[in-house]
Structures are given as C-alpha cells and as structure tokens.
Design a protein around this nucleic acid. Structure first.
Length: 165
DNA sequence: ATTTACAATATGA
DNA sequence: TCATATTGTAAAT
C-alpha cells in the first residue's frame, strides 16, 4: 500500500456529520454518520485539500437538498476495479429526479446479465450521493438495499421528488 | 391476478 | 469458494 495522503474532514449537515476522505487525486470517499465518530485526520492537509473540501461541502449540501451540484471536486475512483468504475460512471449519468433499475445500469454498461455485479459494485461505492446509488432501485421499483442506511436513501429520494410507493 | 420461493449469472476478496 | 444493494420464472393461493 502506498502511503496515500488521506485527509478526513467532517462535514456538518442537517442529516448529521459526514466524513469526507481525500486522497492525492481528489475525493476518495464519503461516509455517512452511521454512528461512526468522524475523526479528523488533518495531518498534512494541503491547501488543495481544503479547496476540495470546500467544494465538497457545498456540493454535498446541494445534493442533500435534491439538487444537482454545479461543481464537484475531483473524484478519485481509482480505488475500484474497472467494472466498478464503469458502473459508477453510469450511475453519475442518471439525471436528477430520475430513477434507474439495476438492470438498466447493467444494460448501460453493456452487460445486461451483470445485474448482480452492478448491485455489488454499488455496494462498494465509496462515494454515496455524488455517485447517485440511491437513485438506483430494483426492477419492481422497490428500494432494494443501501449500505449506508436505508433511511437516508429514502429521505434523499423523497427530497428529489421521487415518491416511493 | 398477486405473492412467495428458488435458481441463475457476474464480479470481488 | 462464498457473499452480494437483483432478476426472472414457476407454482400455489
């Protein structure tokens, strides 16, 4: 493992304190306040990181309001495999207020039969909200699952104007 | 017609 | 090999 300069900065929102992790390349992860205490590993927080954090904070707040963030920090998706990156890229393609099924995503990445893998890739998604995995529902329109808290997912969808049956 | 149960197929550790 | 944030089909009610 290379000594990645990880900086974890907390972001206070109405929904709790998020935990943003930054690598050298950009935003590497975003964790929900799942009872986990947000540690602030601001060891060598470079000026660049602070800039990212600023952008991330704004973008996150906008996203929590159901709006599509105008500016996003650089996302470091290099932690994932090729397939995962493909899935996440497809997820980001989803328009605000639109929902998608796992099957749809599978179709978009040219692997209609990889629906299962798509779900797995979503579960491995390091950056919820920015990578709108919460907009992905099951084929039935069911909410499926959510690693970071089903309740949050539900709330996010409601804020985007997506009402669940 | 609606619901429950089971198997399948792709990817990652 | 096992687990996973699904999906599609079949049978029972």
């Amino acid at each position: 493992m290379q000594p990645a300069v990880e900086s974890q900065l907390p972001i206070a929102t109405r929904d709790g304190e998020f935990n943003a992790r930054y690598s050298e390349k950009g935003l590497a992860g975003l964790d929900f306040p799942s009872g986990n205490k947000a540690k602030r590993t601001s060891s060598a927080a470079a000026k660049t990181v602070e800039d990212w954090h600023r952008t991330t904070t704004v973008a996150l707040k906008q996203a929590l309001q159901g709006k599509s963030p105008e500016f996003l920090p650089p996302l470091d998706l290099s932690a994932g495999t090729t397939f995962q990156q493909r899935v996440w890229n497809a997820l980001r393609k989803i328009k605000p207020g639109e929902t998608c099924s796992y099957g749809e995503i599978a179709k978009r990445i040219r692997n209609p039969q990889a629906v299962r893998a798509v779900g797995a890739a979503c579960g491995a998604n390091p950056i919820p909200i920015f990578v709108p995995c919460h907009r992905v529902l099951a084929a039935n329109g069911k909410i499926g699952g959510f690693s970071c808290g089903l309740d949050v997912k539900r709330r996010l969808l409601a804020r985007e104007g997506i009402l669940l049956c």
